[in-house]
Design a protein around this nucleic acid. Structure first.
Length: 408
DNA sequence: TGGGTCGCGCTATCCACATCTTGTC
DNA sequence: CGGACAAGATGTGGATAGCGCGACC
């Protein structure tokens, strides 16, 4: 992890790829992510220069250092350093384009080094993917926020860059975080993706301060509008026991901190938001969107926002929910980038209780199956069986759904 | 520390047949 | 072009075998 490029093991790592969970030098970043159209889509950002293991989401202008949320919290808890959001990029941008994304690009360690300078100097945007999907590779329009970002990012319209927040919930304390000049980082609040509730998200300056998770819940009802795919029954993602289980697990700290224990059951979101702004602030529009392509990671990032988009890519049936990895991620503990706030210093007993409660609920959880043909189900329900198998009409059977007693 | 055993959870499979889909006339 | 017909495909639920994994010795 960290200081040395995970790929070549020689150069100092500069960027972090979420999809690969790898820290790479610029050279390897380009090599790895120019391999194919899929790898080009990987969202990368600068590596935290403190811990050298987590993706940076903000840059302290005064200290000239890029920081992950955790290190930012440690470094700036109480200080008022001016900070600047660090945007993500995908594709293979040139050094000039990276400079456009990150005005501080030249200040990034090793970027100015001769070796890396050579590498990034070689970066061009002329290379089309071998599969002939060059156009697609150049403008990564994975989601609405990207489209908005690209549309407004007129200066680098030919690049493969897409920009947005790094997907990390923004610290409400980052009021002094500036957006790069010319950056489209202001796009997310303008992404009115949720119909009637859109204007709320369009309020730029007051977005993070006045954000109310209840509005998010309402907004997300319009899944189809958001992602253009059916989400089945979104409520299935948040069934009461699941919510209790997930929240009981993930925000056990918040549970303890909340004055009203009931909040944990249904509306712990707001509670977390109130008690732990750095971890749980509202999911920005683009970070929500980014979950479409990186569900697990984003879930982790959104974990404290209690937003699960595991079913976004299709039917949100129980199986999908089960397989989304959310539970296991939650069980793995707090995300490493989560600031060492009060929640992390909770007594372990509280957490273990939450774990036990979650496991109990998970045991009794019923995974409902989607029945396409009710008529077939009705018939199957009344058919006689032998050891679970259907039998021919008239044959002996050991199970008759219509009869309380077994026949043989 | 490695191997064996056990229990648990999950998934694939099986069955018959009404219903649905597709192709042909 | 639309209706009739045939043939094949599909889906339905409960029981069970098989597999993977963790715990324990």
């Amino acid at each position: 992890m960290g200081y040395i490029c995970d790929f070549c093991g020689e150069q100092r790592s500069v960027v972090h790829c979420r999809s690969d969970a790898a820290s790479l030098c610029l050279s390897c970043d380009r090599n790895v992510h120019s391999a194919n159209a899929l790898s080009r889509r990987h969202s990368r950002t600068l590596l935290c220069e403190r811990c050298n293991s987590q993706p940076a989401f903000v840059r302290c202008i005064e200290e000239k250092v890029s920081l992950c949320p955790n290190c930012d919290w440690i470094a700036h808890n109480g200080s008022a350093h001016k900070r600047q959001a660090v945007n993500c990029y995908s594709g293979c941008p040139s050094s000039a384009e990276l400079s456009t994304i990150w005005p501080f690009f030249a200040e990034v360690p090793t970027v100015g080094d001769a070796a890396c300078e050579r590498v990034i100097g070689l970066m061009t945007i002329n290379e089309d993917p071998p599969d002939g999907q060059g156009a697609q590779g150049k403008i990564d329009v994975q989601d609405a926020s990207v489209a908005v970002a690209v549309a407004s990012f007129h200066n680098v319209d030919k690049s493969t860059i897409w920009m947005g927040s790094s997907g990390i919930p923004h610290d409400s304390k980052l009021q002094n975080v500036e957006q790069p000049a010319g950056s489209t980082f202001t796009a997310p609040p303008k992404v009115c993706y949720s119909g009637s509730k859109g204007p709320t998200l369009c309020e730029e300056d007051t977005f993070y301060d006045s954000f109310n998770m209840d509005e998010v819940d309402l907004s997300i009802e319009n899944y189809d509008e958001l992602f253009g795919v059916g989400l089945g029954n979104p409520e299935k993602l948040f069934e009461d026991d699941d919510i209790d289980g997930l929240f009981g697990m993930d925000i056990s700290g918040a549970e303890s901190n909340c004055q009203d224990a009931h909040a944990v059951e249904g509306s712990s979101i707001g509670c977390v938001n109130a008690t732990q702004p750095a971890c749980s602030n509202a999911a920005s529009a683009d970070s929500i969107m980014s979950c479409k392509t990186e569900p697990n990671l984003c879930f982790a990032r959104q974990g404290h926002s209690s937003l699960s988009f595991s079913g976004i890519t299709g039917d949100s049936n129980a199986g999908d929910y089960q397989d989304c990895g959310a539970s296991s991620m939650l069980l793995m503990g707090e995300p490493p980038w989560c600031p060492p706030c009060a929640e992390n210093s909770l007594p372990s007993s509280s957490r273990s209780d939450a774990v036990m409660r979650y496991k109990e609920k998970k045991k009794t959880r019923k995974f409902e199956k989607k029945v396409r043909y009710a008529s077939r189900k009705a018939r199957a329900d009344v058919r006689k069986r032998v050891k679970g198998r259907f039998v021919k009409a008239g044959d002996a059977y050991d199970y008759d759904p219509l009869s309380p007693t077994r026949s043989y």
